[in-house]
C-alpha cells in the first residue's frame, strides 16, 4: 500500500507563449504511514505536486499509482481517490459555507454517499480529533477565531476518513499558539489514526520538529529527499536555492568551526541542547 509517482511531468498552458514547466519528471514513492514534509520556495512546484496526488491536476506525462492502481486509467474513479487522499488547501477556512460548524464538517462524508447518521458520526469524530470544544459545534463557523476556523476546515477533510492527509501550509497567518495547536493535532492524528501525512511548509523549524522524511522541491524537481538530518546537512545547497536550515543547525556548524566537537547535524532545539551539554560536560 503506497503511492508511486513515475516521471510525473506537468506543464501549464503547453504549446503557448505562457508555457511553464511546473514539474519535471518527478519520481517518488510515498510509503503508508509516513510523516513527510515538503519544502521549497514559492514557485518551486510543491503546490502543483500535491494537487497531483489526489487527481485535481493531471500530469502532462508520467504515471501515478495508488495502492497498485493507475489513477489515470479510464476506469479509475478519481472521486474515490479524493476520498482516500484528503487535501487541505492553504487558508482552508475560506471554503467554509454552511450555517453551522457541524453541518459544514458533514459536507465531505455526505458527498461520499454516507447516510445522514454515518456522516454525522464521522463529523463528530473529526471535530473531536481537531480538539474543537463541543459547545461551539452548532454555531456559525464565521464567528470563530482564525485558528479555530482553520481547525474546522481541517475537520471537514478529516471527516472523509482519508488514508493520506496533505496539508498545504496549514499554519500560514496563525500566531504561535494557533500554529502549535494545529501541528500538535496533526502529529497526534498521524500517530493515532495511522494516517500518512504530507505537510507543506515554509518553516524549517516546524518540519524539523515533526516530520520523519523531508522532500525539497526546486524548479519542479525533487532536489533532496531524506530524513531532516540528512537534508539539512546540505544547508549550503539549500541556501543557494533560497531556502535555509533551522537556526540551530547553523549554530552547530559555527561552534564546530570554533573547534567544539558538537553534533553538526542537530536540527531541533532538543538535539542541539543535548549535544552542547554533552560537549561541555565532557570538557
Amino acid at each position: 500500500m503506497s503511492m508511486i509517482l513515475d516521471k510525473v511531468d506537468y506543464k501549464y498552458s503547453p504549446g503557448t507563449a505562457y508555457e511553464k514547466h511546473a514539474l519535471r519528471e518527478v519520481s517518488l514513492k510515498i510509503e503508508d504511514g509516513q510523516f513527510i514534509g515538503v519544502i521549497g520556495h514559492t514557485g518551486s512546484g510543491k503546490s502543483t505536486l500535491i494537487q497531483h496526488l489526489n487527481g485535481l491536476m493531471k500530469a502532462t506525462s508520467g504515471a501515478i499509482y495508488y495502492n497498485g492502481e493507475d489513477i489515470y486509467d479510464k476506469d479509475y474513479d478519481l472521486r474515490k481517490l479524493r476520498q482516500k487522499v484528503g487535501l487541505v488547501f492553504q487558508y482552508p477556512e475560506h471554503q467554509l459555507f454552511e450555517t453551522t460548524i457541524f453541518k459544514d464538517v458533514c459536507f465531505g462524508p455526505k458527498n461520499k454517499g454516507l447516510s445522514q447518521k454515518d456522516a454525522e458520526l464521522k463529523a463528530f469524530e473529526a471535530l473531536r480529533a481537531v480538539g474543537l470544544p463541543e459547545n461551539l459545534w452548532y454555531q456559525s463557523p464565521f464567528e470563530l477565531s482564525g485558528g479555530q476556523k482553520r481547525r474546522v476546515a481541517i475537520a471537514g477533510v478529516l471527516a472523509m476518513k482519508p488514508e493520506m492527509l496533505i496539508l498545504d501550509e496549514p499554519t500560514a497567518g496563525l500566531d504561535p499558539k494557533g500554529r502549535d495547536e494545529i501541528l500538535d493535532q496533526v502529529a497526534k492524528m498521524h500517530r493515532e489514526w495511522k494516517m500518512t501525512v504530507i505537510l507543506v511548509s515554509h518553516s524549517m523549524e516546524d518540519v524539523a520538529n515533526y516530520v520523519e522524511r523531508l522532500i525539497v522541491m526546486n524548479r519542479g524537481k525533487v532536489m533532496l529527499d531524506g530524513t531532516p538530518r540528512e537534508v539539512f546537512a546540505h544547508y549550503k545547497e539549500l541556501e543557494e536555492v533560497g531556502l535555509s536550515a533551522p537556526q540551530v543547525t547553523y549554530l552547530m556548524h559555527e561552534l564546530r568551526r570554533k573547534g567544539l566537537s558538537v553534533d553538526v547535524n542537530a536540527t531541533t532545539l532538543e538535539e542541539a541542547k543535548d549535544s552542547i551539554l554533552k560537549t561541555f560536560g565532557a570538557k
Binding site: 487535501l87 477533510v157 472523509m160
Partner: peptide
C-alpha cells in the same frame, strides 16, 4: 483565481 481555488477545495471534499 479565488473561484478556481475554492472550487478545487470543494472538489477535494467530494463536491460535484
Amino acid at each position: 483565481e479565488e473561484t478556481d481555488k475554492i472550487m478545487k477545495a470543494q472538489i477535494a471534499r467530494g463536491a460535484d
